[in-house]
Write a protein that binds this DNA or RNA. Sequence first.
DNA 1: TATAATTATTGAACAATGTTCAATAATTAA
DNA 2: TTAATTATTGAACATTGTTCAATAATTATA
Lengths: 191, 191
Amino acid sequence: MARRKDHSREELTQIAIKAGTELVVAEGPEALTARNVAKLIGYTPGTLYNLFENIDELCTAINTKTLIRFAAEIEEILSEHSKPRKRLRRICQAYLNFHHKKPELWALCFATPLRSLNEDYHRAVHKVFDPVAEALLPISGTLRAARQDAKVLWSTLHGICLLQQSGKLNVAETDPAEILVKRFLDQFLKR
Amino acid sequence: MARRKDHSREELTQIAIKAGTELVVAEGPEALTARNVAKLIGYTPGTLYNLFENIDELCTAINTKTLIRFAAEIEEILSEHSKPRKRLRRICQAYLNFHHKKPELWALCFATPLRSLNEDYHRAVHKVFDPVAEALLPISGTLRAARQDAKVLWSTLHGICLLQQSGKLNVAETDPAEILVKRFLDQFLKR
DNA sequence: TATAATTATTGAACAATGTTCAATAATTAA
DNA sequence: TTAATTATTGAACATTGTTCAATAATTATA
């Protein structure tokens, strides 16, 4: 058998990304295998290797789409609010919301070690990061400081969700992520 | 072939943990396979399964030892300094130092998703966490607040090193982790 | 001491993973 | 109509984790 061409190369790529995303949402990051995705889209694993260099690249493509979707949320928040602190609190809330609603997709995006990060991916990171730095500008003073603060903020959100999800900081009380983020923000924005 | 008993069960367990640690330090977390460890200690994979339920458990055992070693460093810092802020800055410095000196071991401990965290592991986490909370007590006010702040601090260190190492926050400037941690601490300790 | 019970160790196997690639057939170009 | 291109497959290979019957050395028992 060969060459069906039910879809263009680009269509098929998008179909694979979508199927991969659904797999991860339904069964977690470890379900994202070449054979699983192939079966789900009605092709064989070999076809995936015609679209992607390797499955890491498919994984990165899924994460890139995830970041782009999240960036859109951030843009919406910025357009709805103009006060810097309100903006930042809402962004953090959106991050926590994403983690809460789609923990497996969040894990694939933020808690899965990956090689093969590419140009598209880094562009998507910028789409998320730059608006956060922008929102921080009035608080941090200089652009340079704002970008550093954005990294700190991002790292903290990241770390809080990661430690929560991984169970690697199971000590006595289990404070919900929201409480920890609030505590962080109260101090972080106090200036 | 069978039963050599060159070592007691407990000895062999420690030997395996040590060999695994060396493998990770030398070749990274992905080199930690049953066959690699077995070959390094002069046994077959089957023997490892007589010592550990699965390789995740070996991995957790390595991480537990890593945490215990790091906890000792923290204790030393606390004994050398009594001012709260100085203590915390030195602890953070030690964390960054660990990340810098043994990035692969750090990755195994903090950036590798694991099931099968056990009682020993959580005890080791306490050994690291509790002294940090203790150092924070004079700054945070109440014990509850101190423990929450310790989680925030820990998460931030974590997140900063993770994003740095993973390359997942590659945006224009590459601020060294030290700069970001300093910026975080300056604000975090301002009270 | 002789025999039985226990257990440490192996080696071979299995399933699942990523990945490669010659073969093939459908499409497109000449 | 023919040639060149390319999408797709299926079978293969290496590497992973893991299991387990077979075995032999040690320990307990009679």
